[in-house]
Nucleic acid binder design. Structure first.
Lengths: 347, 347
DNA sequence: GTTCTTGTTGCTCATCTGTCTCCCACGTCC
DNA sequence: GGACGTGGGAGACAGATGAGCAACAAGAAC
């Protein structure tokens, strides 16, 4: 391991040419005229010396770092962040970029979040991904505007910044549709009390889907609670205590569905024989491990991370104009993941 | 937002001094003698122009980037990665460093992982954190040695690289101890079949703790399965079918404990009245949401990330010699998290 | 057949990116 | 004429890039 940092200069000396020529060859500069033999020589020497370019120096000169900043909320508490990071990392790696990650809190002050963005800016990242952990409106730090940026899983309050979000409505329709398809006619919805886009859109899609199937969507039972296991349990107890007890239950998320499982067990209702359940989120840890496995709707976190990165890089490289896409957020599908919590209702 | 990149030079011109002086003032160079009024002037102008240092140029000149590389396995699939990243990010931020993250797969080839490390090296990170997602032995890429580095949650097969790992034994002792404390005398262990350090150490600690309490640790019931919910279920069915059915169950991890919950439910055993359960990992999603809440042992992922970062930075800054610590891995405690799955056994 | 023009090939020089740092210069006061 | 107080100049870091120069060949003019 005694290799000092070998630079372009060392390669030049060893190959008996100037640094300019080495640079030309290694970067395959189009207008540079270098004899083929010289090219080969330079490449061979560089290889043999184990030369790797100093990305810092390159970046300083070219004003391109090949780094993307990713400001992510609550990296630790939800598995969603991991999927976004993974999608972004793989997309970035495929195009020769790397990710610089900074964690922030959804409840952090605007100044603190601005400082996070500034740290990224000081490092001259080529673009910034700003990811939130659930679909909502966010107020963005002003300095975000100084480089190309894309919002992941949320929409800016001010609008006009390119964003990717999940197709809440399509996902909810798929979930309710699966229940309908199985033959259920009494379908209930356990919703979140927190007023975020998902709450509104899933409710609306729930009602619309039922109505379109000729089932009085407006009158269908809905119970709301905090979107955690306990809330799901409570809402499920209420909804299952009704006279016209639903045989199919659409839950705002997998955690609430987990609560519904417990409520059903306490009431002696078997899933899916007596009660069919669909969740939302596809949190593996829960959905795949409940018994029976929970049929649910997957959020496209990986895809959003990858999409955002692809388009951010396109913008950085001038292949796309982000402002053209900033008018409306891009919507990515939420596919249904079938497991074993849905069956036909008892006669 | 029409601000071009203002540099030290612009500040110098605006303040009517040389760039040298600006640099001296802004970096508070000890040997520089600058009149207080000049200092104030420079600072005021810099502030007013919104000057921020170009970290790239600084890095090029000082040979210090203030960036730490973090190679992390399976960022997406386990919540553990998030906690390590968070611990590292906060520790890094506190000392003015930033994290450059690259995801890798535990099953990736050595070459591919070496390429990941190389990407970090090309960017001249000051040091590297290499994090695995569960405690095990890893074969490290050779180029890792060229900058200070610390292993998180694993030990190198070759040895002699500084590492932090969880205190498996202490955690297992705490878990079994909690059962003993509650009065249990018939305690079983549901173990993992995969041969990793945790499997061996937890088993050994399980037996030792019982024996030290005068309870024939060597004869205590142990059943092994794949460390997932299904495996936990199966192992629990077997262990609970024994004549000397245990009243206390220590589970290899929370997922297996979740399977044990189901097995208990099927056998009509109430938790904790008929069966007390302790898990390991403290995966919030499971442990806090099972009913009753699962008492478990927390893995110090956040702490390991922070510890590793602290010491890595110390090494980078020459405050510590990592090689002095590389002989034996540092062990961080696994605290017991009490919830509601343990009670005194029935008379 | 010589000289000049024009073009092409192959490679190098000088300069630039933004910042740090060693070393020197100037003025003033005892 | 040192000592002190203030400040500036000139590389260096590692590589990118456009202008420019030498060498040689082909063609044209004489």
């Amino acid at each position: 391991m005694s290799n000092k940092n070998i630079g372009i200069k060392d390669v030049a000396v060893a190959a008996g040419v100037s640094v300019t020529t080495v640079s030309h060859v290694l970067n395959e500069v189009s207008y540079a005229r270098v004899r083929p033999e010289t090219r080969d020589k330079v490449r061979a020497v560089a290889e043999q010396l184990g030369y790797g370019p100093n990305r810092l120096a390159q970046a300083l000169r070219t004003q391109r770092t090949g780094m993307l900043g990713l400001v992510s909320e609550e990296i630790a508490t939800t598995p969603h962040a991991g999927r976004i990071i993974l999608g972004a990392d793989e997309a970035a790696k495929a195009r020769g970029y790397n990710l610089m990650i900074i964690n922030t809190s959804g409840s952090a002050s605007l100044e603190s979040r601005q400082a996070d963005v500034q740290a990224l800016l000081d490092r001259r990242v080529d673009g910034i991904l700003y990811a939130t952990m659930y679909h909502r409106d966010v107020e963005l730090p002003a300095n975000l505007g100084s480089v190309p940026s894309v919002l992941v899983d949320s929409v800016a309050t001010g609008g006009n910044i390119t964003a990717v979000i999940p197709d809440e409505e399509g996902g909810a329709r798929a979930a309710v549709g699966a229940l309908l398809e199985a033959g259920h006619t009494r379908v209930g919805f356990i919703n979140n009390t927190h007023d975020v886009p998902a709450t509104r859109q899933r409710l609306q899609a729930f009602r619309a889907t039922l109505t379109e199937a000729g089932l009085h969507g407006d009158a269908a039972p809905v119970e709301s609670e905090v979107s955690e296991v306990q809330g799901g349990y409570e809402a499920a107890r209420r909804i299952l205590a009704r006279e016209d007890r639903p045989t199919g239950l659409f839950c705002y998320n997998d955690r609430m569905a987990m609560g519904a499982y417990r409520a059903a067990a306490e009431l002696g209702l078997a899933i899916p024989a007596d009660l069919s359940v669909v969740g939302f989120d596809d949190q593996e840890l829960i959905a795949a491990n409940l018994h029976p496995g929970l049929t649910t709707v997957a959020l496209p976190h990986y895809e959003m991370g990858a999409w955002a990165t692809e388009h951010l890089i396109d913008a950085v490289e001038g292949k796309t104009d982000l402002s053209l896409m900033s008018l409306h957020p891009t919507i990515l599908g939420c596919p249904l993941v079938r497991r074993d919590s849905i069956a036909a209702p008892r006669q």
